[in-house]
Amino acid sequence: MSNISEYFKDVFNGVLSLLKGMRVTAGYFFKPSAIVTQKYPENRKNLVMFERFKGEVVMPHNENNEHKCTGCGICEINCPNGTIEVIPKSIITEDGKKKRAIDKHIYRLGMCTFCALCVKTCPSNALAFSQKFEHAVFDRASLTKQLNKPGSQLMKGVE
């Protein structure tokens, strides 16, 4: 007798669990607001990428054209595929001391794998990711970028 009752219990439990699954999928089917797909070229004007998106490496500058990069070269050492090249120069500060600073911070977008090791290891938080992702260009040379703006200086207080 117990076998028979177990058999029917099996059938009913099976049907119930299947119906539960179908309720979930049918619920999504009748809920168009749950669709997450974005129609990209159409919504290009008001497209907002999320903050964690890794578009490209940038060096934020403040309004006085100052950045935080001291030219230490840690990003260059950490980069696994030679994307970053820091070209340093030595400047003489007001009190007559020689000091290392950056001349050019070269970033080759075409070689970057967006691993974020440079951004994470930067001791002075000079690098960041921007959300721009439309990187198609007609010339490979334009993928090599200089991150520090011309005439920019080290921000005061950053050593």
Partner: peptide, 13 residues
């Protein structure tokens, strides 16, 4: 289309 809506996608559009 049905498969797409169930999976929260748009499907062919």
């Amino acid at each position: 289309k049905v498969c797409a809506f169930i999976q929260n996608r748009l499907g062919p559009n």
